[in-house]
Design a protein around this nucleic acid. Structure first.
Lengths: 235, 235
DNA sequence: ACTTTTGTTGACCATTTGGTTAAATATTAT
DNA sequence: ATAATATTTAACCAAATGGTCAACAAAAGT
């Protein structure tokens, strides 16, 4: 067990300075070791993440992951018993990274219109920097639908009931039309996510450079929100 | 060379009835053989299509394809030299199945609004029955972006220049706002395609049965078109 | 100091995979 | 009928792959 620094008392009578220094050194060594250790596991996860997202479950090679993590393949199996186990860990992490954002925005107490603006803004920003994520998640979910049950229901859950309430209330107040939440939500997610998933396709189709495409995505933040809001607003 | 039936003259003087029958039988045998032959290749393509769409390039196993086609693995390699070759054939076929619809609608001479309505209607209908297609295409395009150059540019090409013209003209006439074609197109494709790609996810999320989800997709045909049109129309 | 636990490695293994080959069978052309 | 050609198969192969093992190294607990 690593002894925290603040528990070391260099002036206590039963310790010489030399002893104190020895202790300190040991302490540091342990901490560094722990850090490198965590590094190993983290490096595995990072490497696995890259490879899985690039190649998918089947295409990924354990050797490639090990190489990318700078470790031995046996050590990979020491940390994660099997490829499937490692994959599931990475996949869950990916979903866990994406889901809370939806959940938080959806279930907050802001005005619905602000939620919509925040969603398109934050979600497009976030996923632009994790471009492989949504394609990865959706693709694997297509191939392995049973993963959804426990992974996604757990993350999203019934949090979007709040959204349903929002719509109900605003509709009663006459601020918005009595729309179906499912369609509004799907419209919003579609227009935000799809251009990221289909990026290589659309980039080619529109003959845009990487920078131009990022700019294109940026424009969409406001554009999509406005489109959605305008389509449900009354007046 | 198979001799068509209508070229067989059973009463011609140089043929006995027996000869005629023998000829006929041979004829039939050949035709049946040809049909079975085409069947073999077609069965391979069908099997490969299923397996590739389900498992992707890496996940697919040649043995599984052979089994599903009811033939030997060596025969598979006899028809298609390698896995990559077979995959490319299947992939091209998939794209070729999807792309012309976009192209035809986009480059037709109808009014823009009708194009939009036709697109959402026909595209959602079509892809509902080929649910794996878009996910397959987009996913493989993500993993193997170089395929786009020759496959997709060839199919879509610059056909959506027509759309740009449409928008220009209607904008000049004051019928629609001066919008950016790219965004309109992406909005339309997003809202049509995404719910099909993310079907397993959304189905779970909204707790819908298969039938309910199909109904949900059906509703979107009109809904999406109206949304798009309403967002660009002036008045 | 010494024992136990944890981390790391290289060599190894069984299985799977894409692909080949040589021989058999069927079809077509002469 | 026969030679040539196309189709089909079983057996085989080399390479790759996920996974294991025994042994070594480092830390932690005592």
């Amino acid at each position: 067990m690593v002894k925290p620094f603040n528990q070391i008392k260099p002036n206590s009578e039963d310790m010489t300075l030399s002893q104190t220094l020895t202790q300190l050194k040991s302490n540091l060594t342990q901490i560094i070791y722990k850090m490198e250790n965590e590094n190993t596991e983290q490096k595995i996860l990072n490497a696995a993440n890259e490879v899985f997202q690039e190649k998918g479950l089947y295409g990924a090679r354990m050797q490639e992951i090990a190489d990318k993590a700078g470790i031995n393949k046996a050590l990979l199996h020491y940390y994660y018993r099997s490829k499937e186990k490692l994959f599931e860990t990475v996949f869950r992490a990916a979903v866990t990274l994406m889901a809370p954002k939806i959940r938080n925005i959806i279930s907050s107490e802001e005005h619905l219109f602000d939620k919509i603006r925040r969603f398109t803004d934050e979600y497009i920003s976030f996923l632009s920097n994790h471009a492989f994520l949504p394609a990865f998640v959706i693709n694997e979910l297509n191939k392995n639908p049973k993963l959804i049950q426990d992974v996604f229901l757990l993350e999203i859950g019934d949090s979007f009931q709040k959204l349903r309430d929002d719509v109900q209330i605003l509709a009663n107040k006459g601020e918005i039309k009595p729309v179906e939440v499912e369609h509004v939500l799907v419209n919003m997610i579609s227009m935000s996510l799809f251009p990221i998933i289909a990026k290589p396709l659309l980039k080619t189709m529109f003959d845009k450079s990487e920078v131009d495409y990022q700019q294109f995505l940026n424009e969409r933040k406001k554009l999509v929100a406005d489109l959605i809001i305008e389509s449900i607003k009354v007046n």
